[in-house]
């Protein structure tokens, strides 16, 4: 059984005012098939955690560890992490001019699997996944994310999730900017991937809205760069009613 373990993770980011610490010792263990929701107010370090796991060069790990089945993730390059089974669905997917989605998906699949997918099944898989995500077939020949609407970009992220079949996926505010129909379509895609491959999920969100469609096993509340409270799905319901004020007040009191 696969396990992603984050221990005492400390991460800083370069700003104009110098290096700024964002994550102040994060502990988190995600096992295969588990869904963990990371919730928290703006600026609490949720996205920083996502990027640190994926290895974005802007973020510097100052301490702690991330291991995947005992392997040191922090020693891996960005693409090695992906090939080891990690996936980040980005909040703002990047446009790649001149590279068609088809070419991109095939190249990524080949890189992850170490061999080119069989053409017949691959074309069928892509078409089926796109159909389930209600993506028009023209998206295959369009350049990656170029001219896509916000919702289309998010669907394209989930398309990659379904096709690349990672062990663990970090979904960075995948729900942001989606109307309710798109939210359902995207959530169904995540649930399909979860059921099909025993995917472990780290679902980062500001709102509880997406948790109506994707049921978390665990909820972690992020405040000021560390986990302030943990619980089951009932914690999300409480946050829905109370918001984050309780934690923010506590933080002020502690200072």
């Amino acid at each position: 059984m696969s396990t992603l373990t984050i221990a005492d993770l400390q991460v800083s980011v370069a700003t104009d005012q110098g290096q700024k610490q964002i994550l102040r010792g994060v502990d988190l263990t995600i096992k295969e098939g588990e869904i963990h929701a990371i919730m928290g107010p703006n600026g609490s370090g949720k996205s920083t955690l996502a990027y640190a796991i994926a290895g974005h060069p802007k973020y510097t790990v100052d301490g702690g560890s991330i291991t995947l089945d005992g392997e040191d993730v922090l020693a891996m390059s960005v693409d090695e992490r992906a090939r080891a089974g990690l996936f980040l669905a980005m909040q703002y997917p990047v446009e790649i001019p001149g590279v068609t989605n088809t070419n991109f998906l095939r190249t990524a699949k080949t890189a992850i699997d170490g061999e080119a997918p069989s053409i017949r099944t691959w074309v069928k898989d892509v078409r089926e996944s796109m159909g389930k995500l209600r993506m028009d077939s023209t998206f295959a020949e369009r350049n990656v994310n170029e001219g896509f609407s916000g919702g289309e970009k998010k669907r394209n992220e989930i398309l990659q999730l379904e096709l690349l079949k990672p062990k663990f996926a970090v979904l960075d505010e995948t729900d942001s900017g989606l109307d309710v129909d798109a939210l359902k379509i995207v959530s169904e895609g995540v649930n399909r991937a979860h059921q099909a491959t025993g995917l472990g999920i780290l679902l980062i969100t500001h709102y509880t809205r997406i948790l109506r469609y994707i049921s978390p096993d665990f909820v972690h509340v992020f405040v000021a760069g560390r986990v302030a409270e943990e619980g089951g799905a009932e914690l999300a319901e409480r946050l829905e009613e109370e918001g984050y004020d309780r934690f923010l007040t506590g933080e002020t009191a502690a200072v």
């Binding site: 994926a54 290895g55 974005h56 060069p57 390059s77 960005v78 693409d79 992490r81 992906a82 090939r83 996936f87 980040l88 980005m90 997917p93 990047v94 446009e95 790649i96 001019p97 001149g98 590279v99 070419n103 991109f104 190249t107 990524a108 890189a111 992850i112 350049n143 990659q160 690349l164």
Partner: peptide, 27 residues
């Protein structure tokens, strides 16, 4: 950011650079 995006999908740096440059000139 383009390189990071492609590499986060398992594509090696050299391959990612190739894709981006080809894409740039493809127009």
């Amino acid at each position: 950011e383009q390189l990071f995006y492609l590499r986060s999908r398992g594509i090696s740096e050299s391959e990612a650079r190739r894709l981006v440059v080809r894409g740039f000139l493809a127009e």
